[in-house]
Amino acid sequence: MKVFWSNAGFRLKVGIFALVFFLVLGYIVPLFPHVDPIIYNTYPKNLKPNAVNWLGTTALGQDIFWLLVESLRNSILIGLIVATIGTTVGIFIGLLSGFLGGFWDRALMVLTDTFVVIPSLPILILMTSLMKGQAGILLLALTLGLFAWAWPARQVRSMALTLKERDFIQTAWFSGEGAIQTIFTEILPFVWTWALSNFMNAVLVAIASESSLAVLGLSPANLPTLGNMIQWARERNAILLKQWNWIGPPVILTILLFIGLFLLITGYNDYQTRKRGR
């Protein structure tokens, strides 16, 4: 641990700090007793920040601090589900394609390339507009996951193609290890480091897509997410009425979340490169 910390670059340190901060704010803080921030008129409307409502209240009488915390939690949850789907399916398809070769490789790659190139947002809009905001968090995450596997699959395939030719894989083959076992014991450790940074990137992409859908009013209707929270504030003219304590916190938190996690990804990648270099 000590060695890791002394080797970690500035970016990685900031990134880890950001990750811990957001996880605590999103998953530990909600454990404290609090009002349900979705219910209207729990407090007087449009309060400025005060001792009870740390960030004030919305035009609907909701507590902004707790709304922010719940939004952060749901946004991260969506990101995690989508990233899990995307990374798992991506690794599976990529390995399959790379190791099977021939017809299956070509067929899978045509499908993958299609999903890489296809503009995802219009199709997501189509799907969510048919759900009419009725979808729950899981259905939304599954829909977003549909477009999260293609890029990882492509990357893993090219990794698999180079790994296949290495000596130790050949040794494993000839010593009678089965295909599945070879993949698990010999290949996955190599894919692992890559998968971790891809996973974090996928979390960010998913949160961004959700916020895009929220602008269109297509994110699940009563689900507090960072995108929805900003959109609700916009709909009630929080900008024109200069209610910065309402629209400001989710905007700033989203920006910090994205910069923090991005630093974590690039910092982690730098760390891995340097570790290999030693």
């Binding site: 961004a208 916020s211 895009s212 905007v251 920006i255 994205f258 910069i259």
Partner: peptide, 14 residues
């Protein structure tokens, strides 16, 4: 590095 990760929606809003 500070600007790139921000989603389009948020940047446009700011």
């Amino acid at each position: 590095i500070t600007i790139y990760p921000i989603p389009y929606f948020i940047l446009a809003l700011v």
